[in-house]
Amino acid sequence: MAIQTPERPKTALKEPTKRSRWTRTGARPRPTNAFELYSWYFFRVSGILLLVFALTHLVVMHLINNVEVINYDFVRQRWASPLWRTFDLLLLFLALTHGMNGVRTLIYDYVQSKGWRVFNISVLYIVGIFFLLIGAQVIITFNPNLPSLPAK
C-alpha cells in the first residue's frame, strides 16, 4: 500500500496567483506532445533492458571477478572483444539516458519557475551529454594492442 508523505505543501494556503492553463484549453485540439509519450515509453523499455545489463555487469564484475582482480590487463582483455565493448557502450548509454530522463521528470515535478527550469534542464543535458561523450570515446577508441603497464 502506498504511504503518503506527511509534508504539507507550502503553497496550500496561498491564493492562486494566476489562472491555470486548463481554462485556456479551447475546443481546438493541440498537437499531441510526442516527446513526453516517447520519453515515457523509453523509460519502460530502458528499465527492462537495464535490469538485464546492470545485473549482468554486477555478476561479471563483482561476483565472478572482484575489484582486486580488475586492473588494466583485465580491462584490456575484456575490451579486446567487440561483444564486451558493445555491452559496455549500451550499458553506458542506457544508464545515463534513463537516469537523465528520471532527473528531467523530477525537475518538471518540483521546479515550477520557467527560468529555473530552463537552467536546470540545460545543466542536466550539458553534464549528461558530456559524460556520454567521454565515456563513449574511451570505450570506442581504446586500443587493446598496447603493451600492459610495467609492474610497480
Binding site: 484549453t25 506532445n33 509519450l37
Partner: peptide, 15 residues
C-alpha cells in the same frame, strides 16, 4: 482525439 490532445499536453497524463 480531442481529449487525448488535452491529456498529452506537458502537464497532462505524463506527469
Amino acid at each position: 482525439d480531442e481529449r487525448i490532445a488535452v491529456l498529452s499536453q506537458s502537464e497532462g497524463v505524463f506527469r
